[in-house]
Amino acid sequence: MKRLLIPVLFFALGVLNAQNAKTAGNPVLDGWYADPEGVIFDDQYWIYPTYSDAYDKQVFMDAFSSKDLIKWVKHKRIVDTTTISWADSAMWTPSIIRRNNRYFLFFAANDIQNNEALGGIGVAVADKPEGPFTDYLGKPLLGEIHNGAQPIDQFVFQDKDGQYYMIYGGWRHCNMVKLKNDFTRFEPHQDGSIFKEITPDGYVEGPFMFIRNNKYYFMWSEGGWGGPDYKVAYAIADSPFGPFERIGIVLQQDPEIATGAGHHSMIKVPGKDEWYIVYHRRPLTETHHNHRVICIEKMQFDDNGFIKPVKITFEGVQMNLLEKL
């Protein structure tokens, strides 16, 4: 018995250390997904992605929730084209906001190429974060091309004063619009404009904005979405309207791990200066442009407030239980 004691003790310590060091692993979700919106509702992490398979299959969206960043629960088909009267294809890039205990899911549909086509950016609504979501307006919130920006890749941002803005745009142009508080239409900016272009150098698509230490961080994706050079860059300004001058790259491929790392979002742990970047990438074994997976890494800042370049990993992030608010 005494001879077994030490080996058993070391084994037990090894198991304990393995549990303490447990990471989520990348990818964090099973299946082909892209363009993730990461968010926290109450004491749960949520990811809302695009379903990333053949184009004609991109007609629904799933959501995923987690208590600890390790185990994720899949919520199937929270919305699809059968519940959106005007949408028939290509449901992309969800962005979600909770307001007055309702959940508003902004999405792009139909991949319109001109102002004669039906489609653009829509809104769905639900009473729970897992849905089911139904059509909020019965028509697109935005169905036209302005300033050269295709109406896709919307991100809904709430400023410090409570005002909601929608930042969006493909085709290398990015606009910001001021949302009415009920999300039914747009209101003029202070200068009288509706569609204010804030496109920085290098912008392609996938905008995201957050505030840290009273500075506005604007992030976007560059390169070709179907290729290995896809990446995330950023700028910092004193206003949500910029001007935004490109600072550098935050996230990009590692040819030893994965390619096409981009189209991200951010999760901030409430009450702490802890940040995660949620993004998609293409496994080295895949060549199909839609075969993408969702990953999470820690994101950190230097003493001057600049974002440190993120190294993509297979390990991912460690367990992090959220405290109840």
Rank of each mutant, 00 (worst) to 15 (best):
V310N: 06
A54N: 11
E222D: 11
L284P: 02
H263T: 01
G122N: 06
D42L: 13
E297V: 04
M166H: 09
N290E: 08
A63I: 15
L5T: 14
T50Y: 00
P240E: 01
I257K: 12
D43T: 11
D182W: 00
S66K: 12
E323C: 04
L179F: 03
L142I: 14
M219Y: 00
F104K: 04
I249E: 14
K272T: 10
A34M: 01
G260M: 01
T199Y: 02
F64E: 11
D68L: 08
I294V: 14
H189K: 10
A149V: 04
A258M: 07
M219S: 11
M166D: 09
F60H: 13
K71Q: 14
P129K: 02
D68Y: 04
K231M: 12
V177F: 08
L284Y: 02
D30N: 12
K160E: 15
W72F: 09
Q190V: 13
A109Y: 04
D42N: 15
T23L: 13
R281Q: 13
K67C: 10
W92S: 03
K71C: 10
I97L: 00
Q44K: 15
I257A: 10
H263G: 03
L118M: 15
M319G: 10
N181H: 09
V39S: 13
G143Y: 02
F60I: 05
P151D: 06
N115D: 15
G224E: 07
G131Y: 02
T313R: 05
V156S: 07
W46V: 09
D42W: 12
G242E: 05
N100T: 05
T199V: 05
R212D: 09
Y276A: 03
G138R: 09
T199P: 04
K71A: 14
S85E: 13
V59D: 15
L141W: 08
H173I: 10
N26Y: 11
R246D: 10
T23K: 15
P188W: 06
G192Y: 07
